[in-house]
Write a protein that binds this DNA or RNA. Structure first.
Lengths: 238, 238
DNA sequence: CGTGAACTTGAGATTTCTCAAGCGGGGTGG
DNA sequence: CCACCCCGCTTGAGAAATCTCAAGTTCACG
């Protein structure tokens, strides 16, 4: 159910039993989405948003001529389109693996936020962290080499996914294709492929089949200038 | 005073007289910052944020070796570091022109948000739009050429600044240096210079002294693939 | 087996960068 | 009031990163 969501919010602020209960009651009729399909599409002004219950997803914008930019990756517990509550969406959300989502209506959502300030605050923090991640990606695309950008992305994914149990000891069942990586970082897939090979040759990662293994965490971290502060993973303490 | 701020929030939701008054009372002792100085610095965990009362500012992150990434531009009425209310800052905010800022304490700020849902909602929308702008920049840096990126940035600045009276008829007293543009878009200043010349030669803009003039709005728009939807300038209606 | 998607490799073309130098105007100290 | 200096802008030229096009390989799956 929404247990994952609650846990993910609790990273950003301790919740009471009542609040947890109210949150759980929010979730409506679930919807399953097959891997590769879009969960929500750009342009919609739905007055609702979606909670990812299971699976992994990514936000992207695909231009008319096929150029695509991926903006973020999401796991169970993430709200993937809060913007849809108030504004029309400027992006789509694709399912990286098979996903299950729960729609949350704006009315009920708002009711909750204004009634339980704790919860509202947690949500507020949640969205601030999201902004911080966007900015970190901007720094990467603007000022880091392809090698550093890829190393950085891998560090981020492993760190975030380790926190929710999707990765363990730098070992991560990796659902992205090289094209996903390329489209996340503003690279061509050919170049992405070559840089990944370099990362392998340098002994930083192993990446065969559909699994990613970080062989040298400190090295990968250094290569990507990765400093996890911006993820604010201990945000509840702040 | 904070009239500009109120006006800027009202774009995102109509406010009552009481709300407007409460907002006005928030503002504390103002602080003046000279052009070129930083208003707030990365790393601070201040439990307060700043409202820009006058002047223009930009968020940036400057790495140890001097590489700099600019993430957004701000005008009077903007909250430049809401993140500081809850989390440590991952960026600094520099004054583009002489600025005046008002610090807002977290306690009073929160009090307001929870007491006046209208106001909280406006603020919520405000931050959603900010996220949309970040994503638009990501698309640019990842998937657009230098020429398109620069055209797009100029379109955005003129559009946003026209809305607050800083630009008129595509004519804008331009406080950015070419290095600012370069650092916003992940380019070198040399290349930025050459592309600006191309934009001039193509008759899209004029850019001498410290003034920017858009000569061919449709052309510039097309060159930058600029579609102002993401700015949600009529957001209150949504 | 046949097929398609993802990955890989090669090679030449572009974009963008870096280094280096010169120009120009505004501000400042003498 | 003038000379100087610094910052921002401009130009040139070679270097590096990255892209595009095109073809081949591998592997999971029907």
């Amino acid at each position: 159910m929404s247990g994952r969501f609650i846990a993910s919010l609790e990273v950003y602020g301790r919740l009471s039993a009542t609040e947890r209960e109210a949150l759980g009651a929010l979730v409506g009729a679930n919807r399953a989405v097959a891997a590769g399909k879009d969960i929500v599409c750009a342009g919609q002004a739905t007055s609702e948003c979606h909670l990812l219950l299971s699976g992994q997803a990514f936000r992207h914008r695909t231009l008319a001529d096929g150029r695509r930019q991926i903006m973020s990756y999401h796991v169970a517990g993430d709200l993937i389109d809060v913007q849809g509550l108030f504004l029309s969406l400027d992006y789509s959300v694709g399912a990286l693996t098979a996903c299950e989502v729960a729609p949350l209506s704006r009315a009920r959502f708002e009711d909750l936020v204004w009634r339980y300030p704790n919860l509202g605050r947690a949500l507020w923090r949640y969205s601030l962290v999201e902004g911080a991640i966007f900015r970190e990606w901007m720094v990467g695309m603007g000022r880091r080499t392809a090698y550093a950008r890829i190393a950085h992305l891998l560090c981020e994914l492993v760190t975030r996914f380790e926190a929710v149990g999707l990765a363990r000891n730098g070992r991560y069942r990796f659902p992205l294709t090289q094209t996903h990586i390329a489209d996340s970082l503003g690279l061509s897939n050919v170049h992405t492929n070559r840089v990944l090979q370099a990362l392998r040759e340098d002994g930083l990662i192993d990446y065969r089949g559909r699994e990613l293994v970080v062989l040298d965490w400190q090295g990968l971290r250094a290569a990507g200038e990765f400093d996890p502060d911006y993820l604010h993973m201990g945000a509840a303490a702040a």
